[in-house]
Simulated assay, not measured.
Amino acid sequence: MAALGLVHGPLGENSLHLCVDMQRLFAPGGPWAVPWAQNVAAGHRGIDRKTSAANAVHTFVPAARPGEGPGMWARYYQRWAEVTLADIDAGLVDLMPSLARFVPPARTLDKHVYSPWTEGRLDAMLNGSGIDTLVITGGETDVCVLATVLGSIDRGFRVVLATDAICSSVDQTHEALLELYRSRFSEQVETVMIEEVLENWR
């Protein structure tokens, strides 16, 4: 199914590009490599160049040690002990080099769970800012992007999802989530191609 477009009109000065987890951790050669991550990074660069300071980047920070974290996260990091900070190169948490050069002026916020909303840093940044629209890109479509989108909807933001700038390690669930966004959230999520975002961000 084709992207549905910016049905609520052009993007304005109250828009923010929110980039999710485009880090070396998920790049080719990383311990959680997402095959499409490198491909969609080009789309991120296009948005970053156009929007300059209107960018925020979330980076996923794993637990410090195996078995650390609240509740089921402790079990998660027993399973993924080799991806804790104790066992990986700390530089893997950094942004992919092609995107890191946009920081600053882009702002970065760390998170330790899938959602960027849970720990309060994103709310704190946006409260009182006048931002009413979030253009969301990054990975993975069916994990952290999903958590970002749902939290954005709950807070009443206009959500614009750049479909050719999101990716997943599983094609089947990537496609299923795109269908979900388009069919069940069509009043609250606009699914568009990057080209349309760039042409209509004024």
Rank of each mutant, 00 (worst) to 15 (best):
T84V: 03
A86E: 15
D87M: 15
I88A: 06
D89W: 10
A90T: 05
G91K: 14
L92Q: 13
V93R: 00
V93L: 03
L95D: 13
P97H: 04
S98E: 14
S98A: 10
S98Y: 01
L99D: 08
R101E: 13
R101F: 00
R101L: 10
V103K: 05
V103D: 00
P105W: 07
T108L: 00
T108E: 01
L109E: 07
D110I: 05
D110L: 04
D110W: 03
D110M: 11
H112F: 10
V113Q: 08
V113S: 07
Y114T: 11
Y114Q: 15
Y114L: 14
S115Y: 12
P116S: 01
P116I: 05
W117E: 03
W117N: 09
W117T: 05
T118A: 01
T118K: 12
E119T: 00
R121N: 03
L122H: 09
D123K: 09
A124P: 07
A124D: 14
L126N: 12
N127Y: 11
N127T: 14
G128A: 06
S129P: 13
G130Q: 07
G130T: 13
I131M: 09
D132P: 00
V135A: 06
V135F: 03
I136S: 05
I136T: 02
T137V: 06
T137Y: 12
G138E: 01
G139A: 12
G139N: 07
G139P: 05
E140F: 11
V143W: 00
V143G: 00
V143M: 10
C144T: 13
C144V: 04
C144I: 12
V145P: 02
L146W: 10
L146R: 13
A147H: 14
A147K: 10
A147Y: 09
T148P: 01
V149H: 06
V149G: 02
L150Y: 15
L150R: 08
L150K: 06
D154R: 08
R155S: 15
G156P: 11
